[in-house]
């Protein structure tokens, strides 16, 4: 992948994630009994970036998405929540992806749960009480379900959009090239 191609691809993914996030905010939350729970559709994009881009570039996608979403529809405190959530879920997804035989469903569910963990950590720091963390089971059970759904969606996207196929192949090629160079 040439440098320009990569830049455009990163920008496209980031902007898609921002738009999906904004559209998702307009959908009334189906989880009326659990304030704070949401679908997390933008996780699809993070998954795809994780599977088609090197780690460094995936991080760029995540950071750009975070900053743009805060600028467009957020405040400093939502930035804190989302930043902690995004950081934790990114690290978790990266780690889980290395495990053998884990499909995108597992990766995206991990991302969803760790996003909630990160948000609640910030919330309990802000509210200065650990008891906020007790809300985790509610959020993360919903998160696991939506994570499975977004994982399936990401899986189908990745395997049915030809262009993404091409990028995925490129990534594996890049890795093999790098191994050869090292040898």
């Amino acid at each position: 992948m040439s440098n320009n191609q990569r830049l455009v691809y990163i920008a496209l993914l980031a902007s898609q994630a921002v738009i999906i996030g904004l559209v998702e905010r307009m959908i009334p939350s189906p989880f009326f009994f659990a304030p704070g729970a949401k679908l997390g559709l933008a996780n699809i994009i993070t998954c795809m970036a994780l599977y088609t881009l090197p780690v460094k570039d995936t991080m760029k996608v995540v950071v750009i998405r975070l900053l743009l979403q805060t600028l467009l529809a957020g405040t400093v405190s939502t930035f804190l929540y989302s930043a902690m959530g995004a950081l934790l879920s990114f690290i978790g997804m990266l780690g889980v992806k290395q495990l053998p035989k884990v499909s995108m469903i597992g990766v995206s569910a991990t991302g969803a749960v760790l996003h909630n963990v990160g948000q609640l950590i910030v919330a309990s720091l802000v509210a200065n009480t650990f008891s906020v963390m007790l809300y985790l089971p509610v959020l993360s059970l919903i998160g696991i379900l939506t994570g499975i759904a977004t994982g399936i969606a990401a899986h189908y996207l990745l395997h049915h959009v030809e262009r993404l196929h091409y990028y995925m192949d490129l990534k594996t090629l890049d890795i093999e090239d790098m191994k050869e160079v090292r040898l």
Binding site: V96, L99, P100, K101, V102, S103, M104, I105, G106, A109, T110, V113, S140, I144, I148, G151, I152, H155
Partner: peptide, 13 residues
């Protein structure tokens, strides 16, 4: 789509 390690992972989560 889901593998056994996925199931295991979900239980851990």
């Amino acid at each position: 789509l889901a593998t056994w390690s996925d199931m295991l992972l979900l239980f851990v989560l």
